[in-house]
């Protein structure tokens, strides 16, 4: 088997999911400068809601599996969007003019709250996602790609194109970009700032729901703490690409996924067996630190010059 190619395929799949989540972080950060720590939890809630819908439909109906998955998404996405809107409206908006770290602590608090709500509803154990798609594998050279991976890649690409269209071709998108540039001026120009900020949360949450469903289907497992590390990695990806930059979040996500997969596959060889694949998680952070030391604004980030 071609290990390099195989790890690349796995990495790109994982990276696509990171990218979807990273977009949520980067949109919110780009507009209000907040690290929305609870975003990973939104992904988790998306996965959990989708799980509940899918399991009960699979048990009680004869609907075709793809339709069931679709219904799962159709329920999970609005739930997450509502959740994202609620977070912004109730937790963050009142703090818009508070000291910089205040909303960060609020975000951490919300993250703890959501995790424990999920634990109360779905329990503390790992949940097995029902296998809805019969896995088939295709050969690419000497490597394998499953239909689930193909679906993840295709859907992510489609979503990202849609997002780009939204941000660069619609009025809402223009308002979002204007607000990210300068909130006050955008407000003076008649942009409804509150609406734009809420939109960033809602759109990000919809992407999170999709990512949650994908992760659940891909790994066939869900857990109330799954959002934490995933969110962390996605945030890392957003920073890696240059936070606040949509293309950067996508590039950062893909890059991080690939680095992790290759790292896991090769770390043993690289270090003569000294470090094993348990060190997989180190790669993400190690690369992040290295990149930022040499490019302080991330790969695609704008250089922010000092202003006097």
């Amino acid at each position: 088997m071609d290990i390099l190619l195989q790890q690349l395929i796995n990495g790109v799949t994982l990276g696509a999911v990171y990218a979807l989540v990273a977009l949520g972080y980067t949109m919110v950060y780009g507009i209000i400068g907040l690290i929305n720590f609870a975003h990973g939890e939104v992904v988790m809630i998306g996965a959990m809601v989708a799980f509940t819908v899918i399991t009960s439909l699979a048990a009680h109906t004869q609907l075709p599996p793809l339709l069931i998955l679709l219904i799962g998404l159709v329920v999970a996405a609005p739930t997450c969007m509502l959740l994202g809107y609620g977070l912004e409206r109730l937790a963050y908006r009142p703090l818009r003019h508070a000291p910089r770290l205040t909303p960060l602590i609020t975000a951490i608090g919300m993250s703890i709250v959501l995790q424990n709500v999920a634990m109360i509803i779905w329990g503390r154990n790992y949940i097995n996602f029902p296998q809805m798609i019969d896995k088939t594998s295709y050969h690419i050279g000497n490597a394998l790609i499953t239909n689930v991976q193909v679906a993840i890649l295709f859907l992510s690409a489609l979503t990202m194109v849609g997002l780009m269209w939204l941000v660069y071709r619609t009025k809402l998108g223009t308002a979002m970009r204007a607000t990210a540039q300068d909130q006050m001026v955008a407000g003076l120009m008649g942009v409804n700032i509150n609406r734009v900020i809420a939109a960033a949360f809602v759109i990000g949450s919809a992407l999170a729901a999709l990512a949650g469903l994908m992760v659940g289907t891909y790994y066939e497992i869900a857990h109330y703490q799954m959002g934490f590390m995933l969110g962390l990695k996605a945030f890392t990806a957003a920073v890696l690409g240059g936070i606040g930059n949509l293309a950067g979040a996508m590039a950062g996500g893909l890059l991080l996924g690939i680095i992790e997969a290759l790292g896991a596959g090769y770390i043993g060889d690289l270090t003569g067996g000294f470090l094993g694949s348990h060190y997989q998680d180190i790669f993400a952070f190690f690369v992040l630190i290295t990149v930022l030391v040499f490019r302080p604004s991330g790969l695609l980030g704008e250089r922010v010059g000092e202003r006097a």
Binding site: I243, L275, G276, L288, L292, P296
Partner: peptide, 27 residues
């Protein structure tokens, strides 16, 4: 190497450092 980074970038780098230390301790 990292203190020249802007505020939130520094935050994520320190976070990464913390995780690296923990992973090493674990392994």
């Amino acid at each position: 190497p990292t203190l020249k980074l802007r505020g939130d970038y520094l935050a994520i780098v320190t976070l990464g450092f913390g995780e690296i230390i923990r992973i090493f301790l674990n392994n």
